[in-house]
Amino acid sequence: MAERPRPLHAQDKLAFLLSLVPFLMDHDRISVSETARHFGVPEEQIRDAVRLIAVSGVPGETASYQHGDLFDIAWDDFEENDEIVLTNLVAIDDSPRFSAREAAALIAGLQYLSSLPEHGGRAAIASLMSKLARGASGEPTGVAIEASDVDEALALIRRSVELGVQLRFGYRGLRGEREERRVDPLRVESVDADWYLRGWDHGREAVRTFRLDRMSDLVVTDDPIRRRPADVALPDSLFEGSPDDLVVTVDVVPSALPLLADYIPEGSTTRAVGDRVRVTVRVSHYHGLKRLITGLAGLATVVEPPDARRTVAEWARAGAARYGREGER
């Protein structure tokens, strides 16, 4: 996924310098562009770092940074050919260890992914985790994520991508309507415990997002795909707003505000109303809204529009009514 380059803090720049040196040591001669590609950074960032490395070193015997106490590069190759050749090395000869927190972040990430079909199974993951722990300068503990329970759907999605063929499956939307979909799978995404397939929907002639737990009867067809991931620009965010979205005003208990974060457009303002916060949310239809609000009973109330209030009230009343009918027990 394309990531926006971020401004680096001095600490990040230090980590970058300490990582770049051993990489350059392992390559007798390497171009700036290849190095930039490998690290996924702009070429100018590599050049800046190399210029700094080339004049850095240790105070040395004389405590005055004599020539032999500094790194050096072949300047002609650097300036004329944009290539990096280290000609003098100082102090460093290996990659740094991971910090305990860094290793802990990766280990927790691996735990989360350990049920994905590709990764040679849990034994391979466990060995990778212990390697990370050995490569850390402290005990990496404190953060853990439960393995996601991704179902067999993922294996079939992967198979259809491998073969370059369309996927067919039944999809039940929020209204309970079941439709057969034909899709060119583009990418699998997740948010916490929820997994999604983003794909080119042949019926809709557009990119659509499908919850894995709403898909059923998956079939890997023989029909070749028409869209590859490279052909389609996938927006970064799973939940895209649309101009057709419905706008709803909700009063919410302040501590529950994060639970609505997916539905609150960026830059929107809130204001206090009694002990609650009034906020505007955007939803694509009321079927999602009524579920959201009913789940947050006591924490969030729809203020307007009236038909949104009515939809929520009817949903909750219909649910409550089922408990009145004793015959159902």
Binding site: D12, L18, P22, F23, A105
Partner: peptide, 13 residues
């Protein structure tokens, strides 16, 4: 943290 861990990982080439 995870960005820095990746840097160190990339340093291995």
């Amino acid at each position: 943290e995870s960005r820095r861990a990746l840097l160190k990982l990339r340093s291995l080439g």
